[in-house]
Design a protein around this nucleic acid. Structure first.
Length: 493
RNA sequence: GCCCCCAUCGUCUAGCGGCCCAGGACGAAGCCCUCUCAAGGCUUAAACAGGGGUUCGAGUCCCCUUGGGGGCACCA
């Protein structure tokens, strides 16, 4: 099976917002294909007409683009094995479902959902496994055919062998043997003419020549069915790898919708759309999710290209992983520091614009080196650097008073600084710092006290990028204006 | 209820019988640097779930228990 050209796929159903679970299900097959020089494709599994929406498909595609997981074939770009949207492949599924009926591996079932629901309830009441009771299994093929042709509503079910067992191999877990008796006569083709996942995915993976099926572990229990289907058709079996689920940060229980909303409250989210909004970078997100389920020996900070180089499907891990947002923050901050100055400048610009601040490229380029290692998320740029673009700052008066000093002495210090700074032709870092240091030295105050007053006066905040570098960017005129305003404030106290 | 899967520091993980008194990363603690906050450097605490086997030797193989997770739809 590995002699075939490598082809992998991401096959989501467009039923909701794209989240980190989806992202990781796309990432690994992408990495495998790229690492091995194979092909990676996107297939939309929209056979659930009740839940699938075009908006969800759009968000899926946008999410993949944001992450940089480029696919070689897909619904929006086409390819040699299309169409790549399952609702556009109805005829194919119909044909293959009937092939199984003809070969005796499947049968039409005319049971109503009401009856099915009823027997399910009875079975549960009797503590039996809910499953199909097989009444349509033994309808004579001729009769069945006639009823179908007369237009009677029906589904097609897989005719699961009553005896024997089947061994299916998961790459991460090894062979798993299942008794056929514990398997059900699952529906392959629904009465609306569309296939269920069990048929659609297997048919498509075969037709699209997929060599590695990488998917979530919720599919592990149905892998035996899938192997049965594949064998019934006589097809070559792909490699199966089931990724474990993401657990809540506490490690108790899987990540649910509720946890996702909960996370949003403290500035985190597991939805890609939100994460972008919150200032997370594709690099950070990708690195974070890559390592939940992929064990690398060392050097865990990687760009997508580095992941492609190092990826090895054998290093995927089968155990569930609890999400850890602190780690996301770490990877995000790390990747931000790795960006070039122009790149980072371009990425933070929208956040300033959104605040109504006219961030010009020249200033942005000068600011980036000052704030780069202070940003955890891109939107932190507002907290650290908005003052560069504001006309004036409005410091909290109390912040202007240095530790262990009173307003009067702080005012004196501020005036002295104004005297020194205004005597300088420019406030470049190189020109302004030495005389200020000399003043601190002679004044008997500590650098923290003196520079603390200056910082608050000039930036309006207690925490800021390096002071002298910042003043250089703000410019002499504005710095002196702001200092003046601070002196006024201090004198009124 | 039934079936299946998983199990190394708080978290993500390395380890594929001797290289392990278990390594890395995040987080935590301390120190250094320092105009704030970061970044950076150094250091510390922190794990093989429990019990049986197999073996000269087990974190590594087998079994049981416990814990956790997933699945049992005309949803994917």
């Amino acid at each position: 099976m590995t002699s075939r050209p490598i082809r992998t796929r991401f096959a989501p159903s467009p039923t909701g917002r794209i989240h980190i679970g989806n992202a990781r299900s796309a990432l690994y097959p992408f990495l495998l294909a790229r690492h091995l020089g194979g092909t990676f494709l996107l297939r939309i599994e929209d056979t659930d007409q009740k839940r699938s929406t075009p908006e969800a498909e759009k968000e899926l595609i946008e999410g993949l683009r944001w992450l940089g997981l480029k696919y070689d074939e897909g619904p929006d770009i086409g390819g040699p094995h299309g169409p790549y949207r399952q609702t556009e492949r109805r005829a194919i599924y119909h044909e293959y479902a009937w092939k199984l009926v003809v070969s005796g591996h499947a049968f039409p079932c005319f049971c109503t959902s009401q009856r099915l629901e009823q027997i399910r309830q009875e079975q549960q009441k009797n503590k039996q496994n809910p499953r199909y009771d097989g009444v349509c299994r033994n309808i004579a093929p001729e009769d069945a055919r006639r009823r179908v042709e007369s237009g009677e509503r029906h589904v097609i079910r897989f005719k699961m062998p009553k005896e024997g067992s089947i061994t299916a191999t998961d790459l991460l877990r090894g062979p798993i043997t299942t008794e056929n008796a514990s398997l059900d006569d699952s529906v392959l083709l629904k009465s609306d003419g569309l296939p269920t996942y069990h048929l659609a995915a297997m048919v498509d993976d075969h037709l699209m020549q997929i060599t590695h099926i990488i998917r979530g572990s919720e599919w592990l229990p149905s892998m035996p069915l899938h192997i049965h289907v594949i064998r019934a058709f006589g097809w070559e079996e792909p490699v199966f790898a089931h990724l474990s689920v993401f657990l809540k940060p506490s490690g108790k229980g899987k990540l649910s919708k509720r946890d996702k909303d909960e996370a949003m409250k403290d500035g985190h989210s597991t939805f890609l759309g939100d994460m972008k909004e919150l200032g997370y970078t594709p690099e950070g997100v990708l690195n974070w999710i890559a390592l939940m389920g992929w064990g690398v020996a060392d050097g865990d900070v990687m760009t997508l290209d580095q992941m492609i180089q190092r990826f090895n499907i054998d290093n995927l891990t089968p155990s569930p992983a609890a999400v850890n947002f602190q780690k996301l923050d770490h990877f995000n901050a790390t990747h931000i520091r790795l960006l070039t100055t122009p790149d980072l400048a371009a990425r933070i610009k929208p956040y300033f614009l959104k605040e109504g601040l006219e961030a010009d490229n020249d200033t942005l380029l000068k600011i980036v080196p000052l704030i780069r290692e202070r940003l955890v998320t891109l939107d932190d740029c507002i907290a650290f650097a908005a003052f560069f673009f504001r006309e004036n700052v409005e410091p909290n008066p109390a912040d202007l008073i240095a530790k262990d000093l009173d307003a009067a002495s702080c005012a004196q210090i501020a005036k002295k600084m104004r005297e020194i700074l205004s005597s300088l032709p420019s406030l470049s870092h190189a020109e302004a710092e030495p005389p200020m240091r000399a003043y601190v030295e002679s004044s008997g105050y500590s650098p923290a006290q003196v520079f603390g007053i200056l910082r608050v006066a000039v930036t309006g905040q207690k925490v800021s990028p390096p002071l002298f570098e910042s003043m250089e960017i703000i410019g002499r005129e504005k710095v002196l204006e702001r200092l003046e305003a601070a002196i006024d404030l201090l004198e009124k106290m």
